[in-house]
Nucleic acid binder design. Structure first.
Lengths: 317, 317
DNA sequence: CTGAAAGCGCTTACAG
DNA sequence: CTGAAAGCGCTTACAG
């Protein structure tokens, strides 16, 4: 049995209220008594908390995280960063996987709340609309999406990659996304498109609609660089290009997004764009706790992304 | 405000005790009253729980998961499976990342317990020893490790891959692991070694000690197949082999473990061995809940692994 | 400066 | 079959 507040109190011959006051730093208690209580609490490894405090204060000290798909390699890093940041401010982290569909997303929120979460961090599935949430909520998505959103600046990330490719003298590009239902992917490609100098041309392929063959076709028609909205898409394209006997980066340059684990290990190594997940996590946790505790908080700004140049974009036309 | 037990009770003019009894199916209550109570509870979306119940029963309905490193692509799948199975039996799931070191591992357990976990599922860092745990505990590791362990049969997985390679007429093999501090990796390689027919030879390389050059050297000395203890190791070896102008699978076959996301997408596609993570998760959750609830439970058996043959092992000597 | 008392929402003997 | 009462561990006015 872990020690209870009352154990500390009786063993020192004081009241529970006094122990509670000292440990929470609230009421005024004589320095000597306070010291005694603190050292006794430390000696026995006591810290207030648990369901007693939760019941009394209405707060559990636990946050809930809804992820669209833990098996997608992008999200574990986000989960890791969020867990780290929430632990750093003394909160626990409950997780729920919505398996990428909107109904499960509502169900996941409900489960987390039932398990006692004081607030929710939601990484939405591609534009899945959220009905409502009976608790403080922060969304991690993309700056173009509605309120309460913390995110990387995916649009700016898109400009980065196009700047890099045009600097290598590419004039005919292909932008490749998986699904145009994804706000993140749309913003990345919007950034690419808007950063394109007027003397360049680009075509956008959504894999969900046209399939990878459209990318191969574009290359055969003269495109010399492919910018994908994720490393996983880039990896798939690399395989398709290899099958079509198109060499990367000699015949076509290729880039991704997110610096997934394989990007630095595969051959060629993959040029990619990354955001500081810990900065995003920190902003998200801060914004959520501000809501929970009712304190003020500056509206979160988008975290800038960074280009990581690698060998997959070292070719020139 | 969510409805409380007492809200249901007063709106029906009955006592809290009766509502509680009906909803938990315990005391005997007249069928009519029970029905009324149940439908009123459903109408208002009430379900017992929260800190009130936790305080009274001493259980929170939440499990804690300690992972060595969420950014390692092997673990998110395990986390996803565990979250799924725990949700299926009505438990929430708290996570904590131990960042791969033993001190954090103890800290992670402490944090989870403080956040209210009724029990802990621990995926240990490479043989990091666990001091002690003041709560029910289940470990997910490898069958050769101590009590309370649920796992895939990594040894048998090793035998699978060697059977596959020798069937393709390979007679000189290389087994490659990252670290021989890992029980999982040791067991996988033990299985490989024990499955090796007497007319074959094999050499084991631990990357941590010898580096990838030793693998290239072994191939130059005549080895025709490489069995790695993980897909990530296999991917790294593929890059090194490519740099050394050794073609996979034409000149050497290569296999991994775990079917990580890139294994089926890269070229060549990677032969690998996989376990049913959901079966492992189910066993682990069952074993943990049996401990928590004090019910009996059969000792968990090791989950068999399955070979997934792909193009990286289609070469023959 | 310190403590007695009430109460957060629930469940569990127990009495009727 | 139903309910009054106590109590899980804590915090918070409030009284002294």
């Amino acid at each position: 049995m872990p020690p209870r507040l009352i154990d500390i109190a009786t063993s020192l011959g004081v009241s529970a209220a006094t122990v509670s006051n000292v440990l929470s730093g609230k009421g005024r208690v004589s320095p000597e008594l306070a010291d005694q209580i603190r050292s006794e609490a430390e000696r026995r490894g006591y810290a207030p908390g648990g369901p007693g405090r939760a019941l009394r204060t209405g707060r559990s000290g636990v946050l809930g995280l809804v992820l669209p798909d833990l098996s997608n390699p992008l999200f574990p890093r986000m989960a890791q960063a969020l867990e780290h940041e929430s632990a750093a401010v003394g909160y626990g982290m409950l997780i729920a996987d919505s398996h990428g569909n909107a109904r499960n997303q509502q169900g996941a929120i409900a489960r987390l709340l039932k398990s006692g979460a004081d607030g929710i961090i939601l990484v939405p599935r591609r534009g899945a609309q959220l009905e409502d949430c009976a608790a403080p909520l922060v969304i991690i998505d993309t700056p173009s999406s509605p309120d309460n959103t913390v995110s990387a600046d995916h649009y700016q990330g898109g400009t980065l990659i196009v700047g890099h490719l045009t600097r290598f003298n590419h004039r005919s590009l292909v932008f490749v996304g998986e699904s145009n239902l994804s706000g993140v992917q749309r913003d990345r490609i919007a950034g690419m498109r808007d950063a394109l100098p007027s003397y360049c041309t680009a075509r956008t392929v959504w894999l969900e609609q046209e399939g990878p063959a459209a990318v191969v076709a574009a290359v055969k028609q003269g495109a010399t660089a492919i910018a994908a909205t994720s490393d996983l898409v880039a990896l798939r394209l690399l395989a398709v290009l290899e099958d079509a006997k198109i060499a990367v980066p000699q015949q076509v340059s290729l880039s991704g997004f997110d610096d997934l684990i394989f990007a630095s290990v595969m051959r060629p190594t993959l040029t990619t764009v990354i955001a500081d997940e810990f900065a995003i996590a920190r902003n998200a946790i801060k914004a959520l706790i501000a809501q929970i505790e009712g304190t003020d908080h500056l509206p979160p700004s988008a975290i800038p992304m960074t280009l990581i140049p690698r060998t997959s974009t070292t070719g020139t036309p």
